[in-house]
Computed example of a mutant assay.
Amino acid sequence: MHDLPGSIGPDMTQPATRGPSMADVARHAGVSSQTVSRVANGHSNVEEPTRQRVIASMEALGYRPNRAARALRSGRFHSIGVIMFTLSTFGNMRTLEAIADQAAEAGYSITLIPAGPTASQVSGAYSRLNEQAVDGIILIFEAHLIGKTDITLPPGVPVVVIDSNPDSQLPVVDTDQALGARQATQHLLDLGHRTVWHISGPLTSFSATHRREAWAATLAEGGIEAPPPLAGDWSTESGYRLGLELGRRDDVTAIFAANDQMALGAIRALHELGREVPGDVSVVGFDDLEESSSFWPPLTTVRQDFREVGRLSIQTLLRSIESPTAAPDRSVLVPTELIVRKSTAPPRA
């Protein structure tokens, strides 16, 4: 069908416009096309004044490197896949933020795929990533799911796991969960409490298991039999419910909660029961939420360096991407720090 007079249609008489080419940038900057290619691909063998001149020409001309063509030449897509179990926790969000920042600094983009807790959901996430062009994958969830028979890792794609068992066959980067739990428990014992009760995370969580086992081991080293732990689900509501249970016991003078949200719920429960914090019961959390210093009383807690976890996970993954034949790192643990505030004190005489 022909366009009618006066109608709006494609003007076939005008040549199609194209964006500036690498050769255009080279002429503008007064360098070779090879030099422009090195700058576009992030190579280091370009003198800094020349690099800045090429970048200025790219910006002046509006040049955008062709990522697809660059990937065909280099075998790299400069993209990292992230599979995450949940976006709702403080630690996961802070870690993801750090991963995105560090990846961008290294010239990589991020493809995020949330996955449910079942093996089939994790397998589906892998399948979706197989359809994406990624150079490596970071997993932020419990790595015991990887051992399920219906999950196949993308062949030849490096993988790093966060929040997992250090005995995993894959490289693991995580906070030293056991150290943090020992710091929290020992702090309460050093204040003079005869024992420490524990509000744990879910029984299926590696992080919760590491914290729970380290709490019990620290008590055992002091010759103290650990009281039965109470399992929450990381939520403030579960901390409140279990705080009511513990607060009704006169022999409870110290509580270590496996995260700050559950600690906050427990503190609310203790207040409602008329038990002062820390006068009657001391409470320690884990994570050091930004709001923890504004709890009443301000919360003593274990600080995790999520930004360092994110930085090291990218660093570990990039080493595997750039040196695929090198032996992979097996476990990198980031130390924790006990932050003492006003929610802990010696027990009443």
Score class of each variant (00 low, 15 high):
99 I>Y: 03
217 A>C: 03
246 L>Q: 08
57 S>I: 01
295 F>M: 11
125 A>F: 08
342 K>I: 08
252 V>M: 05
87 L>N: 04
236 T>G: 12
41 N>R: 05
55 I>D: 04
151 I>K: 11
333 L>W: 01
151 I>P: 06
295 F>A: 10
236 T>A: 15
3 D>P: 15
331 S>F: 03
174 D>T: 00
57 S>N: 01
79 S>R: 15
114 P>A: 05
272 E>W: 06
303 R>T: 02
326 A>Y: 07
184 A>I: 00
182 R>N: 11
7 S>D: 15
257 A>N: 04
326 A>G: 09
131 E>H: 15
317 L>D: 07
346 P>C: 06
53 R>V: 00
40 A>H: 01
240 Y>D: 07
257 A>T: 01
8 I>P: 00
317 L>H: 03
198 H>E: 10
79 S>Y: 11
156 G>Q: 06
331 S>W: 02
126 Y>F: 15
122 V>P: 09
290 E>C: 12
111 T>M: 06
197 W>V: 11
9 G>H: 07
302 V>W: 00
37 S>N: 00
316 T>C: 02
179 L>C: 00
323 S>T: 13
167 D>P: 01
109 S>Y: 15
162 I>G: 03
256 F>D: 02
176 D>F: 00
173 V>H: 02
347 P>V: 10
330 R>Y: 02
292 S>V: 02
190 D>Q: 11
282 S>K: 08
308 E>C: 02
135 D>L: 05
201 G>A: 08
192 G>P: 03
236 T>V: 13
317 L>Y: 01
325 T>D: 14
173 V>S: 02
204 T>M: 08
187 H>M: 01
26 A>Q: 01
339 I>H: 09
328 P>E: 01
303 R>P: 00
6 G>E: 04
273 L>N: 10
321 I>V: 11
133 A>Y: 09
306 F>K: 01
62 G>S: 12
293 S>T: 14
36 V>E: 03
135 D>Q: 06
250 D>G: 09
55 I>N: 05
209 T>V: 07
76 R>V: 05
139 L>D: 06
186 Q>W: 04
253 T>F: 04
153 L>Q: 14
215 W>V: 02
240 Y>R: 06
122 V>F: 13
13 T>S: 14
24 D>R: 03
222 G>I: 08
293 S>E: 14
180 G>T: 00
155 P>H: 14
67 R>K: 15
